[in-house]
Structures are given as C-alpha cells and as structure tokens.
Design a protein around this nucleic acid. Sequence first.
DNA 1: TTAATATTTCTAGTATTGTCGAACTGATTA
DNA 2: TAATCAGTTCGACAATACTAGAAATATTAA
Lengths: 121, 121
Amino acid sequence: MSITLQMNQLDITAMFKALGDPTRLRIFEFLRACGAPVAVEESGDVRPLVGPTVGDICCHVTGNERVTSSISFHLKELRLAGLITMERRGKNMICSVNPEAIVLLAQYFGTTPSVGNSDCC
Amino acid sequence: MSITLQMNQLDITAMFKALGDPTRLRIFEFLRACGAPVAVEESGDVRPLVGPTVGDICCHVTGNERVTSSISFHLKELRLAGLITMERRGKNMICSVNPEAIVLLAQYFGTTPSVGNSDCC
DNA sequence: TTAATATTTCTAGTATTGTCGAACTGATTA
DNA sequence: TAATCAGTTCGACAATACTAGAAATATTAA
C-alpha cells in the first residue's frame, strides 16, 4: 500500500461530481487523449509511467505558462475521485487517467440494468 | 417541437454535474431499473409512455409519502440535463430515462479516444 | 363549483464549491 | 548552501447549489 492516501474504492457519485466541472472535464479529456501507459501495483494502486506534467496540463487548459492553484485544486479533485493518478518525476508531477475508472464508467452505462424491480412503476 | 422547453442538445458536462448528486443518482438509477418504454417524436423529443410517478420516485428515494420540493428540484435538474423525460398522465407526472443520453454516455466511455494529439506529453 | 390530490415554484437560509494571491514544500541546479 | 523551478496548500471571498416550508398550479372527484 502506498504512503499517500489513495482512493481504492471507486465511488461513482464522486466521479460524476468531479467530471461535472468544465475545467476538470477538459483536464480529464486531455489526459485520456494522451493515453499514457500506467503501472499497476500488487496493491491495486495505479501509477503513471509517463504522461503530461501539471504544467503541460495547465498550459493546455488555460493557456497559462505558470501553474495556477486552480488547476492544482481541480487535479486534486480528480485524483480523490479516483479518475486520475499522479506521481513525482524529478521536479515535475506526471499525470495519467486511471484506466480502472474508465472501465467502471463504461460498464456503468454499457450494461443493461437489472429490470423487474417489483416496487417500481 | 414541444411547448415545454426541452434540452435537445445534450451537454456531457451538464449530465455529469446532474449525476454528481447522490439523490439525483438514486433517482436516475431507479428510473433505469424501471426500464420503461418511451416514444420518440419526429422532432427528436422523447416522451415516456409508462413509468413511475414523481410520488413513486419520492417514496422510493426518501421513503416519504408526500412529494418534497427537493425531489421536484432534482427531477428538474435531471430533466434540464437531458437525462430523463417527464409527461403528465392525469393528475400525475410519469418519468423515464432518456435512452439517447445513456447511449451518448456509453459511447463517451466505451470508445477509445483519439490518441496522438501532438501537443501533449 | 368546491374540494382534494399531485406536483411545481418561490423565498430564504445554509452549505459547498471555485477562484485568486500569498506563502509554503520538494527537488534540482549553481 | 543559496537560488530557482514546479506544484501544493492556505485563507478569504464570491458564486452556486441543496433544503425546507409556504404558496401556487393543474387535474380530477364530489
């Protein structure tokens, strides 16, 4: 288990809440488009191997060279929701989507839900 | 085109925002589980044919017999986000998920995003 | 027409969220 | 070690969102 607090139990409401902000959705889509590979630990933790830095993300999303506290805040929200992972690489933090989250969300909408709940309709 | 203001242009951020509230997600999941059939107009509008009433939903979600303004508020949010549709049936309003929204969301997570954005990583 | 039922809208209060600038931390370079 | 670079955290403020109760609307029943 890693030292840093990781959200291993994926909460679908938290994910939707995180994706419900336009800035965060842009960050998420940027990271998805990057499609950087990740390492999966025995513990289940996911770590990025390569990927854009916080600065790259900030530049892409805001056009700003300097990393803003706002971007940092949104990255934290995405991380706590289990949607992305980050890891220090020298002076930088490199970022990546959490593929497990994508799988979970794809399943959530892809599968036909169980029909026939007797207490409805 | 229907008289009531309908959101025909589906906005993915608005959908995530709507699903990011636990009460709304419960309502949405209940409606999905009901799996009630809908009618699709030439205009593209989707109308429920059968489905639970607002009272049914309120009862299921809050355990409360009386419909609360809070449930009404959340239903409106889901409706404005394009996730559900509602129609009057006598004294009641009957509700249903918008299948187009489910398809859109399934595609959003199901498809592999276009990789190779040169300005990333 | 009046009453009752089902639901929405309005208003106000509280809580949560996003933004900004300043201060702080960790890692590298001089 | 000092300076710099890359990001994060903190504190304050504005904006937004959720909740609750009261009043309003639409439909049906008496």
